[in-house]
Protein backbone atom coordinates (compact mmCIF):
# COMPACT_ATOMS: atom_id res chain seq x y z
CA UNK A 1 0.00 0.00 0.00
CA UNK A 2 1.36 3.35 -0.96
CA UNK A 3 1.91 5.92 1.71
CA UNK A 4 2.73 8.71 -0.69
CA UNK A 5 0.73 11.89 -0.08
CA UNK A 6 0.05 12.85 -3.66
CA UNK A 7 -3.39 14.38 -3.11
CA UNK A 8 -6.02 15.11 -0.46
CA UNK A 9 -8.27 12.26 -1.66
CA UNK A 10 -5.63 9.56 -1.48
CA UNK A 11 -4.51 10.93 1.85
CA UNK A 12 -8.08 10.69 3.10
CA UNK A 13 -8.43 7.15 1.73
CA UNK A 14 -5.20 6.19 3.39
CA UNK A 15 -6.28 7.62 6.68
CA UNK A 16 -9.67 5.95 6.62
CA UNK A 17 -8.20 2.55 5.90
CA UNK A 18 -6.10 2.86 9.01
CA UNK A 19 -9.00 4.21 10.98
CA UNK A 20 -12.27 2.80 9.62
CA UNK A 21 -14.26 3.97 12.66
CA UNK A 22 -14.06 7.48 11.33
CA UNK A 23 -15.67 6.45 8.05
CA UNK A 24 -18.41 4.52 9.77
CA UNK A 25 -19.20 7.58 11.83
CA UNK A 26 -19.33 9.70 8.69
CA UNK A 27 -21.63 7.17 7.05
CA UNK A 28 -23.85 7.17 10.13
CA UNK A 29 -24.23 10.95 9.94
CA UNK A 30 -25.03 10.82 6.23
CA UNK A 31 -27.66 8.11 6.71
CA UNK A 32 -29.14 9.79 9.76
CA UNK A 33 -29.30 13.10 7.94
CA UNK A 34 -31.08 11.44 5.02
CA UNK A 35 -33.71 9.83 7.25
CA UNK A 36 -34.25 12.94 9.30
CA UNK A 37 -34.78 15.02 6.17
CA UNK A 38 -37.20 12.58 4.56
CA UNK A 39 -39.14 12.17 7.80
CA UNK A 40 -39.28 15.76 8.85
CA UNK A 41 -39.65 17.43 5.45
CA UNK A 42 -43.42 16.75 5.19
CA UNK A 43 -43.82 18.28 8.61
CA UNK A 44 -41.72 21.24 7.58
CA UNK A 45 -43.84 21.62 4.47
CA UNK A 46 -46.95 21.68 6.69
CA UNK A 47 -45.42 24.58 8.58
CA UNK A 48 -44.61 26.36 5.31
CA UNK A 49 -48.16 25.90 4.08
CA UNK A 50 -49.69 26.95 7.37
CA UNK A 51 -47.71 30.17 7.49
CA UNK A 52 -48.29 31.08 3.84
CA UNK A 53 -51.57 32.95 3.22
CA UNK A 54 -54.03 30.82 1.28
CA UNK A 55 -54.10 33.25 -1.64
CA UNK A 56 -50.35 32.85 -2.13
CA UNK A 57 -50.73 29.04 -2.13
CA UNK A 58 -53.52 29.19 -4.69
CA UNK A 59 -51.44 31.49 -6.87
CA UNK A 60 -48.70 28.92 -6.76
CA UNK A 61 -45.38 29.51 -5.04
CA UNK A 62 -42.18 27.63 -5.40
CA UNK A 63 -40.05 28.89 -2.56
CA UNK A 64 -39.06 26.33 0.09
CA UNK A 65 -39.70 29.01 2.73
CA UNK A 66 -43.08 30.46 3.71
CA UNK A 67 -44.33 33.37 1.61
CA UNK A 68 -45.25 35.55 4.53
CA UNK A 69 -45.78 34.81 8.18
CA UNK A 70 -49.49 34.31 8.71
CA UNK A 71 -49.62 32.98 12.29
CA UNK A 72 -53.27 33.98 12.37
CA UNK A 73 -54.05 30.75 10.51
CA UNK A 74 -53.64 28.84 13.77
CA UNK A 75 -56.36 30.91 15.36
CA UNK A 76 -58.49 30.95 12.25
CA UNK A 77 -58.57 27.15 12.46
CA UNK A 78 -60.72 27.41 15.56
CA UNK A 79 -62.80 30.33 14.29
CA UNK A 80 -63.92 28.71 11.08
CA UNK A 81 -64.96 25.32 12.58
CA UNK A 82 -65.04 24.09 16.20
CA UNK A 83 -61.81 22.21 15.66
CA UNK A 84 -61.29 21.61 19.37
CA UNK A 85 -64.49 19.53 19.39
CA UNK A 86 -63.18 17.29 16.64
CA UNK A 87 -59.96 16.88 18.59
CA UNK A 88 -61.96 16.09 21.69
CA UNK A 89 -63.90 13.44 19.77
CA UNK A 90 -60.77 11.74 18.51
CA UNK A 91 -59.21 12.00 21.94
CA UNK A 92 -62.18 10.39 23.65
CA UNK A 93 -62.42 7.66 21.01
CA UNK A 94 -58.71 6.92 21.23
CA UNK A 95 -58.60 6.93 25.02
CA UNK A 96 -61.62 4.69 25.51
CA UNK A 97 -60.50 2.28 22.82
CA UNK A 98 -57.02 2.10 24.35
CA UNK A 99 -58.42 1.35 27.79
CA UNK A 100 -60.75 -1.35 26.49
CA UNK A 101 -58.06 -2.87 24.29
CA UNK A 102 -55.44 -2.93 27.05
CA UNK A 103 -57.86 -4.51 29.49
CA UNK A 104 -59.06 -7.26 27.18
CA UNK A 105 -55.65 -7.81 25.57
CA UNK A 106 -54.09 -8.14 29.04
CA UNK A 107 -56.46 -10.93 29.96
CA UNK A 108 -56.02 -12.58 26.57
CA UNK A 109 -52.25 -12.07 26.67
CA UNK A 110 -52.13 -13.72 30.09
CA UNK A 111 -54.02 -16.74 28.84
CA UNK A 112 -52.02 -17.06 25.62
CA UNK A 113 -48.69 -16.26 27.19
CA UNK A 114 -48.85 -18.15 30.45
CA UNK A 115 -51.32 -21.00 30.28
CA UNK A 116 -51.04 -24.28 28.44
CA UNK A 117 -54.28 -25.44 26.90
CA UNK A 118 -55.24 -27.44 23.85
CA UNK A 119 -55.86 -25.32 20.79
CA UNK A 120 -53.78 -22.39 21.97
CA UNK A 121 -51.71 -22.20 18.79
CA UNK A 122 -54.74 -22.51 16.53
CA UNK A 123 -56.62 -19.84 18.44
CA UNK A 124 -53.68 -17.45 18.37
CA UNK A 125 -53.28 -18.05 14.64
CA UNK A 126 -56.99 -17.36 14.11
CA UNK A 127 -56.71 -14.05 15.95
CA UNK A 128 -53.72 -13.05 13.89
CA UNK A 129 -55.40 -14.14 10.67
CA UNK A 130 -58.48 -12.07 11.44
CA UNK A 131 -56.30 -9.06 12.09
CA UNK A 132 -55.21 -9.21 8.46
CA UNK A 133 -58.76 -8.96 7.12
CA UNK A 134 -59.28 -5.56 5.50
CA UNK A 135 -61.46 -3.44 7.78
CA UNK A 136 -63.60 -2.59 4.75
CA UNK A 137 -64.89 -6.16 4.86
CA UNK A 138 -66.65 -5.39 8.15
CA UNK A 139 -68.06 -2.00 7.26
CA UNK A 140 -71.29 -3.01 5.55
CA UNK A 141 -72.56 -5.53 8.13
CA UNK A 142 -71.49 -3.29 11.00
CA UNK A 143 -73.19 -0.29 9.47
CA UNK A 144 -76.32 -2.36 9.03
CA UNK A 145 -76.21 -3.40 12.68
CA UNK A 146 -75.36 0.03 14.07
CA UNK A 147 -78.15 1.82 12.21
CA UNK A 148 -80.44 -0.27 14.42
CA UNK A 149 -83.83 -1.69 13.75
CA UNK A 150 -82.70 -4.84 11.98
CA UNK A 151 -82.57 -7.77 14.39
CA UNK A 152 -79.56 -10.05 14.55
CA UNK A 153 -80.71 -13.57 13.66
CA UNK A 154 -79.17 -16.99 14.08
CA UNK A 155 -77.49 -17.78 10.76
CA UNK A 156 -79.47 -20.15 8.52
CA UNK A 157 -82.19 -20.48 11.16
CA UNK A 158 -84.75 -19.61 8.51
CA UNK A 159 -83.83 -22.71 6.55
CA UNK A 160 -83.91 -24.95 9.60
CA UNK A 161 -86.89 -23.64 11.55
CA UNK A 162 -88.91 -22.06 8.75
CA UNK A 163 -88.76 -18.58 10.31
CA UNK A 164 -85.66 -16.65 11.41
CA UNK A 165 -84.70 -16.93 15.06
CA UNK A 166 -84.03 -13.45 16.41
CA UNK A 167 -81.22 -13.09 18.90
CA UNK A 168 -81.60 -9.42 19.74
CA UNK A 169 -82.23 -6.10 18.09
CA UNK A 170 -79.19 -3.87 18.49
CA UNK A 171 -79.73 -0.26 19.48
CA UNK A 172 -79.07 2.52 16.97
CA UNK A 173 -75.44 3.39 17.55
CA UNK A 174 -74.53 5.50 14.52
CA UNK A 175 -73.48 9.05 15.42
CA UNK A 176 -72.43 7.83 18.88
CA UNK A 177 -68.95 6.82 20.12
CA UNK A 178 -70.21 3.28 20.59
CA UNK A 179 -70.42 2.71 16.85
CA UNK A 180 -66.72 3.57 16.60
CA UNK A 181 -65.20 2.27 19.83
CA UNK A 182 -66.66 -1.21 19.38
CA UNK A 183 -65.17 -1.88 15.92
CA UNK A 184 -61.93 -0.07 16.80
CA UNK A 185 -61.47 -2.24 19.89
CA UNK A 186 -62.07 -5.37 17.86
CA UNK A 187 -59.75 -4.28 15.06
CA UNK A 188 -56.84 -3.23 17.23
CA UNK A 189 -57.08 -6.05 19.75
CA UNK A 190 -55.06 -8.66 17.81
CA UNK A 191 -51.90 -6.57 17.64
CA UNK A 192 -52.08 -5.73 21.33
CA UNK A 193 -52.82 -9.34 22.25
CA UNK A 194 -49.78 -10.37 20.26
CA UNK A 195 -47.50 -7.80 21.89
CA UNK A 196 -48.75 -8.52 25.42
CA UNK A 197 -48.63 -12.30 24.94
CA UNK A 198 -44.95 -12.02 24.15
CA UNK A 199 -44.31 -9.88 27.20
CA UNK A 200 -46.43 -11.73 29.73
CA UNK A 201 -44.99 -15.02 28.53
CA UNK A 202 -41.52 -13.87 29.54
CA UNK A 203 -42.28 -13.15 33.17
CA UNK A 204 -40.83 -16.06 35.20
CA UNK A 205 -43.43 -18.46 36.60
CA UNK A 206 -41.89 -18.15 40.04
CA UNK A 207 -42.97 -14.51 40.35
CA UNK A 208 -46.57 -15.32 39.61
CA UNK A 209 -46.46 -18.33 41.94
CA UNK A 210 -44.95 -16.13 44.65
CA UNK A 211 -47.70 -13.54 44.24
CA UNK A 212 -50.37 -16.23 44.40
CA UNK A 213 -48.88 -17.82 47.50
CA UNK A 214 -48.58 -14.38 49.07
CA UNK A 215 -52.28 -13.80 48.61
CA UNK A 216 -53.38 -12.74 45.15
CA UNK A 217 -55.64 -14.50 42.74
CA UNK A 218 -54.39 -15.16 39.23
CA UNK A 219 -55.94 -11.88 38.08
CA UNK A 220 -54.45 -10.13 41.08
CA UNK A 221 -51.03 -11.46 40.15
CA UNK A 222 -51.59 -10.19 36.60
CA UNK A 223 -52.31 -6.65 37.74
CA UNK A 224 -49.89 -6.44 40.64
CA UNK A 225 -46.87 -8.24 39.25
CA UNK A 226 -47.07 -9.21 35.60
CA UNK A 227 -48.38 -5.95 34.16
CA UNK A 228 -46.04 -3.66 36.15
CA UNK A 229 -43.09 -5.78 35.03
CA UNK A 230 -44.30 -5.63 31.42
CA UNK A 231 -44.66 -1.85 31.42
CA UNK A 232 -42.74 -1.40 28.13
CA UNK A 233 -45.03 -3.85 26.39
CA UNK A 234 -48.16 -2.29 27.81
CA UNK A 235 -46.91 1.16 26.79
CA UNK A 236 -46.15 -0.07 23.30
CA UNK A 237 -49.55 -1.68 22.82
CA UNK A 238 -51.30 1.34 24.32
CA UNK A 239 -49.51 3.96 22.26
CA UNK A 240 -49.89 2.02 19.02
CA UNK A 241 -53.61 1.65 19.65
CA UNK A 242 -54.02 5.26 20.69
CA UNK A 243 -52.27 6.64 17.62
CA UNK A 244 -54.12 4.33 15.25
CA UNK A 245 -57.52 5.33 16.61
CA UNK A 246 -56.59 9.00 16.88
CA UNK A 247 -55.74 9.02 13.17
CA UNK A 248 -58.64 6.81 12.15
CA UNK A 249 -60.99 8.17 9.52
CA UNK A 250 -62.43 5.32 7.47
CA UNK A 251 -64.78 3.82 10.09
CA UNK A 252 -65.64 6.99 11.93
CA UNK A 253 -66.49 8.85 8.73
CA UNK A 254 -69.02 6.13 7.91
CA UNK A 255 -70.39 5.65 11.42
CA UNK A 256 -70.78 9.41 11.86
CA UNK A 257 -73.50 10.10 9.34
CA UNK A 258 -72.45 13.73 8.90
CA UNK A 259 -69.28 15.75 9.28
CA UNK A 260 -70.42 17.60 12.42
CA UNK A 261 -68.61 17.26 15.75
CA UNK A 262 -71.98 16.52 17.38
CA UNK A 263 -72.09 13.38 15.26
CA UNK A 264 -68.73 12.29 16.68
CA UNK A 265 -66.89 13.07 13.50
CA UNK A 266 -63.18 12.65 14.27
CA UNK A 267 -60.11 14.82 13.86
CA UNK A 268 -59.63 14.04 10.16
CA UNK A 269 -63.27 14.90 9.55
CA UNK A 270 -62.58 18.27 11.17
CA UNK A 271 -59.55 18.89 8.98
CA UNK A 272 -61.49 18.07 5.85
CA UNK A 273 -64.25 20.47 6.78
CA UNK A 274 -61.96 23.38 5.80
CA UNK A 275 -62.82 22.42 2.29
CA UNK A 276 -66.22 23.69 1.30
CA UNK A 277 -68.00 23.47 -2.00
CA UNK A 278 -66.31 26.60 -3.30
CA UNK A 279 -63.21 27.16 -1.19
CA UNK A 280 -60.25 25.09 -0.16
CA UNK A 281 -58.19 26.61 2.65
CA UNK A 282 -54.89 24.82 2.27
CA UNK A 283 -53.26 26.92 4.94
CA UNK A 284 -55.97 25.93 7.44
CA UNK A 285 -55.62 22.28 6.44
CA UNK A 286 -51.97 22.54 7.27
CA UNK A 287 -52.44 24.48 10.50
CA UNK A 288 -55.13 22.06 11.71
CA UNK A 289 -52.92 19.09 10.88
CA UNK A 290 -50.09 20.55 12.95
CA UNK A 291 -52.40 21.18 15.88
CA UNK A 292 -53.83 17.69 15.54
CA UNK A 293 -50.41 16.05 15.52
CA UNK A 294 -49.22 17.82 18.67
CA UNK A 295 -50.94 15.61 21.31
CA UNK A 296 -49.64 12.45 19.65
CA UNK A 297 -46.17 13.93 19.30
CA UNK A 298 -46.17 14.77 22.99
CA UNK A 299 -47.44 11.30 23.88
CA UNK A 300 -44.72 9.64 21.84
CA UNK A 301 -41.97 11.79 23.30
CA UNK A 302 -43.18 10.99 26.80
CA UNK A 303 -43.54 7.27 26.16
CA UNK A 304 -40.64 7.04 23.73
CA UNK A 305 -38.19 5.34 26.00
CA UNK A 306 -40.65 2.67 26.92
CA UNK A 307 -41.86 2.15 23.36
CA UNK A 308 -38.39 1.69 21.98
CA UNK A 309 -37.45 -0.80 24.64
CA UNK A 310 -40.86 -2.40 24.15
CA UNK A 311 -40.49 -2.88 20.41
CA UNK A 312 -37.05 -4.38 20.72
CA UNK A 313 -37.39 -6.24 24.03
CA UNK A 314 -40.25 -8.33 22.70
CA UNK A 315 -37.81 -10.39 20.70
CA UNK A 316 -35.22 -10.75 23.43
CA UNK A 317 -35.16 -12.19 26.87
CA UNK A 318 -35.84 -9.61 29.53
Amino acid sequence: MSTQSDGPLSRWADRSMKNPGQVYRAMFYVAAFFFIVTTLFPFYWLVVLALTPNQEILNGFAAPVPEGFNVAAFAQVFEQVPFHLYMFNSFVLATSTTIIVLLIASLAGYVFGRLEFPGRGVLMLAILAISYFPPAAFVVPLFDIFTGGSPVVVPFSELVFGSPVNLFTPPRLVNTPGAMILPFSALFLPLSIFVLTTFYGQIPDGLEDAARVEGTTRIGALFRVIIPLSAPGVATAGVLTFISVYNEYFFSQIMALGNQPQQWSPLVGGILSYQTQYTTSFNLFAAASIIGVLPVAILVVVAQERIVSGLTAGALKE
Binding site: G206, L207, D209, V213, V225, P228, L229
Partner: peptide, 29 residues
Protein backbone atom coordinates in the same frame (compact mmCIF):
# COMPACT_ATOMS: atom_id res chain seq x y z
CA UNK B 1 -56.34 -21.45 45.90
CA UNK B 2 -52.83 -20.96 47.32
CA UNK B 3 -53.70 -17.70 49.08
CA UNK B 4 -56.28 -19.39 51.32
CA UNK B 5 -54.11 -22.25 52.52
CA UNK B 6 -52.16 -20.48 55.24
CA UNK B 7 -48.84 -21.29 53.65
CA UNK B 8 -45.76 -19.35 52.68
CA UNK B 9 -43.20 -20.44 50.18
CA UNK B 10 -39.56 -19.77 49.41
CA UNK B 11 -38.71 -20.43 45.80
CA UNK B 12 -35.59 -21.83 44.21
CA UNK B 13 -35.17 -18.76 42.00
CA UNK B 14 -36.00 -16.59 45.04
CA UNK B 15 -38.77 -14.80 43.10
CA UNK B 16 -38.60 -11.39 44.73
CA UNK B 17 -40.75 -8.86 42.90
CA UNK B 18 -38.14 -6.84 41.01
CA UNK B 19 -40.28 -3.70 40.86
CA UNK B 20 -40.64 -3.39 44.63
CA UNK B 21 -38.11 -2.54 47.29
CA UNK B 22 -37.33 -4.92 50.13
CA UNK B 23 -39.96 -3.52 52.44
CA UNK B 24 -42.70 -3.72 49.80
CA UNK B 25 -41.61 -7.24 48.95
CA UNK B 26 -41.81 -8.37 52.55
CA UNK B 27 -45.10 -6.61 53.21
CA UNK B 28 -46.75 -7.66 49.93
CA UNK B 29 -48.93 -10.33 51.54
Amino acid sequence: PPKDRGIAMVFQNIALFPHMNVKDNISFG
